[in-house]
Design a protein around this nucleic acid. Structure first.
Length: 204
DNA sequence: GGGTTGATGTTC
DNA sequence: AACATCAACCCG
């Protein structure tokens, strides 16, 4: 009854990046005393996906080469937001999974303080929001998130509920904008953008 | 409600 | 120069 599910191991991240992105829906992300249920992810593939950082950044290709499955890929977006990804490699397609939204579970007061917002649905309903809510920064780039190797209070564990998963196009990108590689819990109140509501990205 | 715009820093 | 975002601002 009191049994907690085990921490996810490297094998979980040694599969096809699309399978991992889909299977992360419903998984609990634990981060230094805070936690949340993952309700939205996006897959980015090393091969054949121009939207993946590896398509344009040598440093991202080096990261994929040198880091183990389950490593955190963290970077600053638009000079403002820290975005959190997990490295997938050694199974089918290698790639990165962007964690886009959480349902807050633990450490909610700390999340409220960091976000300066009260409503639960304002805390982690977007990749930049959850980065701030959890206190994720550049110093965490490369942190192992799978067992063995992860720090004591960080990691992922299977959730208690099975959530229905649907897929949709990815948010906010111009390259490969038609790939249906975003995964979300159906009708879940904590997602960043509901199913079918991704706005087209404009051009100057 | 919906659409538009500016902030900000790292990478190339 | 581009960018895997967000919130403030306008308009209605």
């Amino acid at each position: 009854m009191n049994s907690r599910t085990p921490w996810l191991e490297r094998d979980f991240f040694t599969r096809d990046v699309l399978a991992v992105a889909r299977d992360l829906i419903g998984v609990e992300l634990h981060w230094q005393g805070c936690s949340g249920r993952i309700v939205e992810t996006e897959a980015y593939a090393v091969q054949g996906d121009l939207a993946c950082h590896t398509a344009s950044r040598p440093s991202a290709r080096e990261f994929v080469e040198k880091q183990p499955p389950g490593a955190a890929y963290v970077y600053l977006n638009y000079g403002v937001h820290w975005l959190f990804n997990l490295l997938v490699k050694g199974g089918g397609r290698d790639g990165l999974v962007l964690i886009r939204a959480l349902e807050p579970l633990q450490g909610i007061e700390q999340m409220r303080a960091r976000r300066q917002r009260q409503k639960l649905t304002d805390l982690c309903s977007g990749p930049g929001k959850l980065g701030l809510a959890l206190g994720i920064q550049g110093q965490h780039h490369g942190m192992p998130m799978a067992s063995p190797g992860r720090p004591p209070r960080c990691g992922l564990r299977q959730g208690s509920e099975v959530l229905p998963v649907v897929s949709d196009v990815r948010v906010g990108i111009r390259q490969a904008a038609d790939f249906p590689w975003r995964f979300l819990a159906r009708d879940h109140p904590h997602v960043s953008v509901p199913l079918g509501k991704v706005p087209p990205v404009g051009r100057a």
